[in-house]
Amino acid sequence: MKKLLTLLTLLPLTLLAHINIAVSYPYIGALTKTIGGEHITTTVLAKGNWDPHFIVPRPSLIAKVRNADALIMNGAQLEIGWLPPLINRAGNPKTSPSATTFLNLSHHVELINKPSEVNRKDGDIHPDGNPHFHLDPKNILLLAKTIREFLISIDAEHRDVYEKNYNDFFEMWNQKMSEWNQKMSEKKGLKVIQFHDNLAYFNQAYGLSNIGTIEPLPGIPPSSRHTIEIINLIQQQNPCCILHDVYHSTKTAEFISQKTGIKVVLMPHDIESLENINDLASLFDYLTSAIK
């Protein structure tokens, strides 16, 4: 009986001890959970196998934002098309961009490909630079550190836990990075084609060079004229392969592959975007062994 009573009094306390953090994408969820450990729960808003630019703003996501104690987003306008109305409708001051419980990760890494001129005639560009920065494994460490500081700032009581979890992760990740560096060293200098330049940071990290995209401009679907240009480009420059995301149709890529003989390689962009990719390490394990 006594045990039951203690359990009952402890129950609400343990519930309170959990900080419920809403995050926009699965990779942020995994990283936050790694650093936060048992003291936090994460609620991921977007699905990993969907285009991160286009997430259906389902009303259930409003409920998730409404019930969150904090919100971590990717930023750099990746969520611009779907997250603002969810935040507006949730009526939760803790997830307001001005709140101390709100974290925009893009403010803590260096963005590349920032356009010198911002004009929609160049397609649906990201004025702050390429937002897919988490695909450079070095940035993952920066993000982990940012999340550690964020968690400490909202829950100083568990500072030790967050620091320890970060240190463990740091060690594991460094080990993994040298493994990946080794695997990718022979790929350095390879030319690649993509659908959309979402591997810009990955390519930079491992010295791959992107020579063209199947979409003529960011966010503009393939056209036959541009496809012919890409085929000519491939014949001139001999890239190794077409690195393709999992959410666009591979129809055009398959056509180009048929015409030129180069391979189409599916490249997952996030956790759960392909089967068996359940954590950050397996995401990069896959990416670094995808190009044969």
Binding site: R66, I87, N88, R89, A90, G91, N92, P93, K94, S96
Partner: peptide
């Protein structure tokens, strides 16, 4: 004008 600052899911 809209206020989200009230909290508790209120707008």
């Amino acid at each position: 004008f809209t206020s989200n600052a009230l909290g508790h899911g209120t707008k």
